[in-house]
Design a protein around this nucleic acid. Structure first.
Lengths: 243, 243
DNA sequence: ACGGATTTGTCCGTATGTATC
DNA sequence: TGATACATACGGACAAATCCG
């Protein structure tokens, strides 16, 4: 009579304790409001999550070191004060993000995308990019200008040829286009910085065209920085500390 | 793949692993409805199929690279998800392509997060980061090592203090922990690069501690590059002969 | 104050995959 | 190919701590 292998249990999932950690994080995020709540016992969790008790304990150790839970021998495991730092859900991201966050991310994402685009753009891609810059400059009203501008940035992201990176870009773009910030964009676009942006777009596309990753990256960074600066000036009244 | 026509009752004791592979495929096709099922042990299969354990293991390696099964040391071999795939071709290559994508993104995301963390870490954050690096080095088994490693990277992302950036990190981390990568991670962890990674972790945390954004960024980039190199070697060795 | 019940903490035996000869 | 040593995982058993009646 030795330990039966886990012949019966249903959901024995993928790999290791990281799976248990992931599930436990979700569990904690659900009970986010309820503090001082008691979690199931380790043995229950072991059965529920379909992993061994050692894996559960390892995951709990991590959560305990993060302060999300707190254990007491003989008593149980309890959820601790939830740090609002961890935001797992994408919904409601817009409300929690602010302009600084978005620009901070764009400043890192878009130069990288431009760099990759310079490495992987086909002739058709470059033609399309040129076409988009032309459409931006030819746009008569501000609305279509922003539309084509967004299309250009998106096409650069597509040209980068990394589906995961594109997915991240889509998320950022979604937050960026949040209706709550419409008025800010409205104010920014009314400036006469159109020529500057047009030039910068051309610079980026030109670098991509001559397969210059570093140049494309620098140009894109400069472009985002200009945007940042402009938006900072526009919103100067409401937001103070820029660190 | 040579002749697979000898499905019949050939008496030649071709203990070839292709025979085992064929039998195992039939076995999986029968159980295709039942997912999460545990297969017989390698020793049992070796006896049942009448071939050596090496042949069984070679066949199982192929099936694992296709994602049809996944194995866990100390536990057993289990049938994986998604058996319905008309194209029996390169499923392993798709995972490799995803692998490149993930590393390409991590190479851009994580240095930026380390840079921001260096700007915004509190004393408590730094203490926790130091604690995590210590936990990694003190971990006895590979599983908890990987767990603490993941916790360190995640905490750096949290310390960066940008909820949008953290959301992106979470997405990448989710993809990275996909069950399909089990094989890669398992092989990577068996490598003896622990000291190197420990040093790199210390370098990153030290840069954060002395508020050196550029240093933290460079250290994180170097760390991801090392990981990339290691995983490249692993995948290259697993799919074909290394040069 | 006491004791049984429950839970986390710890250790070990067995089983299984991994690696090497 | 076969056999052996190794690393890991799982479950059980026991100890320590806590809770509750």
């Amino acid at each position: 009579m030795s330990g039966r292998a886990n012949a019966g249990q249903s959901t024995l999932r993928s790999s290791n304790s990281s799976l248990a950690l992931e599930r436990l994080r979700e569990m904690l995020d659900q009970d986010l409001s309820a503090t001082d709540r008691q979690l199931p016992t380790e043995r229950e969790l072991s059965e529920t999550l379909g992993v061994g008790r050692r894996a559960v304990r390892r995951a709990l150790e991590v959560l305990e070191s993060e302060g999300r839970i707190w254990r007491r021998q003989g008593s149980g495991t309890y959820v601790g004060p939830a740090p609002d730092k961890s935001g797992p859900v994408i919904d409601g991201l817009s409300s929690r993000s602010n302009f600084f966050e978005v620009m901070e991310v764009r400043l890192r994402i878009e130069p990288a995308l431009a760099q990759l685009a310079a490495l992987r753009a086909t002739e058709d891609d470059i033609r399309h990019l040129r076409d988009l810059t032309r459409k931006i400059s030819e746009a008569q009203d501000a609305d279509s200008r922003e539309l084509w501008d967004s299309a250009l940035h998106r096409y650069i992201a597509q040209t980068a040829g990394n589906t995961l990176f594109l997915a991240l870009f889509n998320i950022v773009d979604k937050v960026r286009q949040d209706p709550a910030w419409h008025h800010v964009r409205e104010m920014a676009r009314s400036q006469e910085s159109r020529v500057l942006y047009t030039d910068q777009h051309d610079t980026i596309v030109a670098a991509i065209e001559r397969r210059d990753p570093a140049g494309a990256e620098a140009a894109a960074r400069q472009h985002i920085l200009s945007l940042h600066e402009r938006l900072l000036a526009v919103t100067a009244g409401g937001l103070s500390h820029a660190s």
